[in-house]
């Protein structure tokens, strides 16, 4: 079995814009399987030997023939995300290790599954949505996705199509900076409505910035979700 913790070089195979600030990067597949929701660590090395490491969630499902997908949001002054946005090109070699992490769901875990993502925090949840469609289409899953504006919604077309076409998968999209819901944040009513529609979740996954994750995890506990059924992943911020 391949050692997931060994650094190895992988090659960028494709780069596609996902939104104005997020790009999708396709790499050679990992040596071994991962579970949807896990991340990889990426390491960049300067000519003088200086290195920077960051974590990025895997957006693709295990065994995706198109390779491993990461979706990286450019942050102002971001040392690593800025490199991916401005410098990285197809054919570049990047050091990577993984998969890593306990923020993970697989078909055998069953459902119902409640996913709550803020901004680029949707990336590991997207892998779970894809995994469900492929390997567990009977598992009820609902994604609450909070983004600032419609143009900033990652995988918008894919997620709407899935919620339209896939029985058992629902999407609740909240735009917090434009349209009729501007100014609204994920609140208890939204969580209660989601639980009414989905049933009490057996597993819940919350991902996004630090404050977002803290608030949503508390709301879930208030709404009666067992704390041990809630997994969190914080991107920083």
């Amino acid at each position: 079995m391949a050692d997931p913790f060994r650094w190895r070089s992988t090659t960028i195979r494709a780069i596609t814009p996902a939104t104005a600030r997020v790009k999708s990067f396709r790499f050679d597949a990992l040596d071994g399987p991962h579970r949807a929701g896990q991340h990889v660590d990426v390491r960049l090395t300067a000519p003088d030997g200086y290195q920077a490491q960051r974590s990025y969630s895997i957006a693709s499902v295990p065994g995706d023939p198109a390779g491993l997908e990461l979706m990286i949001e450019r942050l102002a002054d971001g040392e690593v995300s800025g490199f991916f946005d401005e410098v990285a090109e197809i054919g570049d070699a990047i050091e990577m290790r993984g998969p890593v992490g306990a923020f993970a769901w697989e078909a055998a875990d069953g459902g119902p599954v409640l996913l709550v993502g803020g901004g680029s925090g949707v990336v590991p949840l997207l892998a779970m949505v894809r995994e469900r469609a492929l390997r567990a289409p009977d598992v009820p899953m609902l994604l609450i996705y909070s983004a600032r504006r419609a143009a900033e919604v990652i995988a918008r077309g894919e997620l709407s199509a899935r919620s339209r076409d896939e029985t058992g998968f629902d999407l609740t999209l909240l735009l917090t900076r434009e349209g009729p819901t501007a100014g609204r944040r994920i609140d208890r009513v939204m969580i209660d409505t989601a639980i009414e529609c989905l049933g009490m979740p057996r597993h819940s996954f919350v991902c996004g910035g630090n404050a977002f994750v803290g608030t949503v995890a508390d709301l879930l506990v208030d709404a009666g979700v067992r704390p041990s059924a809630i997994r969190t992943e914080r991107f920083g911020g």
Partner: peptide, 11 residues
């Protein structure tokens, strides 16, 4: 192995 084009911001 240096990453092409990466200089970073060493502290």
């Amino acid at each position: 192995m240096a990453t092409r084009g990466f200089t970073g911001r060493p502290p």
